[in-house]
Amino acid sequence: MEEAVLRELAEETGPLTAKVVRRIATEDKPHPDTGQPRRASFFLLRTPEDTRDAWDHHVKGDGDDAGLTCSCRFLPCP
C-alpha cells in the first residue's frame, strides 16, 4: 500500500520525493456516487526539507484528468 500512495502522490501532484512515515487511519464508508463499499487509507508522508510549499502540476496521460492543472500546496498539521 505504501508503494501505491507514493505512486499516486507523484501522478496526481508531480514528481515529489516523499517517504511514508506511517498509516494514520483507515475508513470504511460507501462511495458517495455509487454507494458501493469503499475503504480509504490515510498516510503521514515526509518530504525533503527543500520541497516547495506550493506548485502547479500539469496532469499528463490519457485519463479523465489529463490536461488539468492542479494547484498544490502543503499545510502544516496541527
Rank of each mutant, 00 (worst) to 15 (best):
E8N: 01
P48V: 05
K29M: 13
G61T: 03
V20I: 08
G14H: 12
R23H: 02
M1N: 14
R39A: 05
P32F: 11
L44H: 01
R22F: 07
L6D: 01
D28M: 14
A54F: 11
V20S: 01
D64G: 14
K19V: 08
A25P: 06
L44S: 06
E11W: 02
S41Q: 12
K29N: 11
L9S: 03
K19S: 07
D33E: 15
T26D: 15
E2L: 00
A10E: 13
P15V: 05
P48C: 03
L68Q: 11
F42Y: 05
D53N: 06
T47E: 00
T69H: 10
A18F: 07
C70K: 14
L6C: 01
L6M: 02
T69D: 14
P32W: 07
V59R: 12
G14N: 06
E2P: 00
H31T: 09
R38T: 07
F74W: 14
L16R: 01
D65V: 07
Q36F: 08
C70Q: 06
P32G: 03
C77I: 15
R22T: 05
V20N: 02
L6K: 04
C72F: 06
A4G: 02
S41G: 08
L44P: 00
G67K: 12
D50L: 05
C70D: 03
R23N: 10
I24W: 11
T47L: 14
R22D: 11
F43E: 06
G61H: 01
D64Y: 13
L75A: 13
R38I: 10
Q36L: 12
D62Y: 09
R22K: 07
D33F: 14
F74G: 08
R46L: 04
D64F: 14
V5M: 03
E8C: 00
P78A: 08
R23V: 12
P37N: 06
T47M: 11
A4N: 09
C72K: 04
